[in-house]
Design a protein around this nucleic acid. Structure first.
Length: 153
DNA sequence: GCCAACGTTGGC
DNA sequence: GCCAACGTTGGC
């Protein structure tokens, strides 16, 4: 079992949006980065757990826990001319982009802000905290995962 | 809104 | 295959 951190801009898709979805489950679509895609197609497994992270907002941070509940699926938003995720280089015959489905496990009572995460030496090597990190999906070690959960009330 | 850091594109 | 130019991310 692997652990993940998935970023989303809450104005676009927040943990509250996920909570309102049927079965609290949604496709994690719109990923347009090869490294993040490869994580989904090669390394993610059904049952893996991940943190839901809010980025590009007043207080960025981890807001809850989600579970991967599908294998990698073709991201059909790439074929949709009206979608902001449209990519003419992806086609149903030769899809370039994929997604997984995620299910809400729990929303934390309080956000764990990015600046709080940075205070813990236990997390000093966390990929999220590395300078210049922009990847929307990153791996989290078991140690980091357990430690972060221990911060949750 | 600024800007550092990084990814992608395309000319050569 | 190199690399400059450009676009995007995302914290501040």
């Amino acid at each position: 079992m692997k652990y993940w951190l998935l970023k989303s801009e809450p104005d676009t898709f927040s943990i509250d949006h996920l909570a309102q979805c049927i079965n609290q489950t949604s496709a994690w679509d719109g990923v347009r980065n090869y490294q993040a895609r490869n994580f989904m197609t090669k390394d993610m497994r059904i049952g893996d757990l991940g943190f839901f992270y809010h980025s590009s907002t007043k207080i960025p941070g981890i807001v809850g826990l989600i579970k991967i509940t599908s294998e990698a699926l073709v991201d059909n938003t790439a074929f949709d001319h009206t979608s902001i995720y449209f990519d003419p280089k992806s086609s149903p015959e030769k899809p370039r982009w994929f997604m997984v489905e995620v299910t809400l496990v729990r929303k934390f009572k309080q956000i764990i802000p990015l600046n709080k995460l940075r205070e813990h030496p236990q997390l000093q090597d966390m990929l999220l905290l590395k300078r210049g990190n922009r990847l929307s999906i990153t791996t989290v070690t078991a140690q980091e995962f357990d430690f972060i959960l221990s911060l949750v009330e």
